[in-house]
């Protein structure tokens, strides 16, 4: 994140990735993926990880409760994408064709993250992850607003945001400190007042599924 160089992020990421691979002597992303499939933890390249960390932190920052970084949402995001969670095993519809084709040995899911990264770099006219936090927030807010315009449901950001929120609110801190979690309520109260202190339940399963 320290560099403010003018190299496009894909180039930078490729350079970083290639450098790391050479340093570790582990070869290609395909081999990396195979290592993951065999139980090792290197799912993504360092550029993808850096982007996952910035996006997670920007979407759910630490406030009076810990944020996404404290509960390792980036780890979840990369794992989830590598398994095609939230429909990321398939190509998006519409104009957002991913760089990595379906059927590639490397999971398609990570290409959704790459697509978001490409757009943010284009908006940044450089390397998004190298910008100051305020600039990152403003750019991501703009991308978020664009993605949520009517008719733009296929924008890859929807999936990334979905998985970041999922990672946070299904963590112990997100689910039981930021929100309320009660596995065994023991009673049903059909009508009670909401106060300023009332927090939503992460264990309201109907709301989770259909709310």
């Amino acid at each position: 994140m320290a560099s403010t160089g003018t190299i496009g992020s894909m180039d930078r990421r490729q350079l970083l990735g290639a450098g790391l691979l050479l340093a570790l002597g582990v070869g290609t992303p395909l081999q990396l993926w195979r290592r993951h499939a065999e139980g090792e933890s290197d799912i993504a390249d360092v550029g993808q990880r850096a982007l996952a960390e910035r996006l997670s932190d920007l979407v759910v920052p630490a406030t009076d409760t810990p944020g996404a970084l404290a509960v390792k949402v980036p780890d979840w995001l990369l794992l989830a994408l590598s398994h095609g969670q939230a429909g990321t095993a398939a190509q998006p519809t519409g104009p957002y064709v991913l760089a990595r084709p379906v059927g590639s040995a490397v999971p398609v899911g990570l290409a959704w993250l790459d697509a978001v990264g490409r757009q943010l770099n284009a908006m940044a006219k450089g390397d998004f992850v190298s910008l100051a936090a305020k600039a990152q927030h403003d750019l991501l807010s703009a991308l978020d607003a664009e993605a949520f315009k009517p008719g733009n449901d296929a924008h890859p950001w929807h999936k990334i945001k979905d998985l970041i929120l999922t990672g946070y609110y299904t963590s112990e801190i997100g689910g039981s400190q930021e929100l309320r979690y009660e596995l065994v309520p023991g009673r049903w109260e059909p009508d009670i007042p909401i106060t300023l202190q009332t927090r939503a339940f992460s264990s309201d399963w109907t709301a989770v599924d259909f709310g």
Binding site: L58, V59, V60, P61, T63, G67, H137, L140, S141, D144, A145, A147, F148, H158, K161, D162, L165, Y169, G174, E178, L179, I194, T198, R199, A200, F201, S202, D204, T206, A207, V208, D209, F210, G211
Partner: peptide, 27 residues
Amino acid sequence: ALQSTWTQGKRMPGIGAEMKDNLHKVG
């Protein structure tokens, strides 16, 4: 009849502390 919880955030614009505060509340 049901109320929303955090998953409504997947369908709403917004990021950061403001969004987190919104999702804190019963939907």
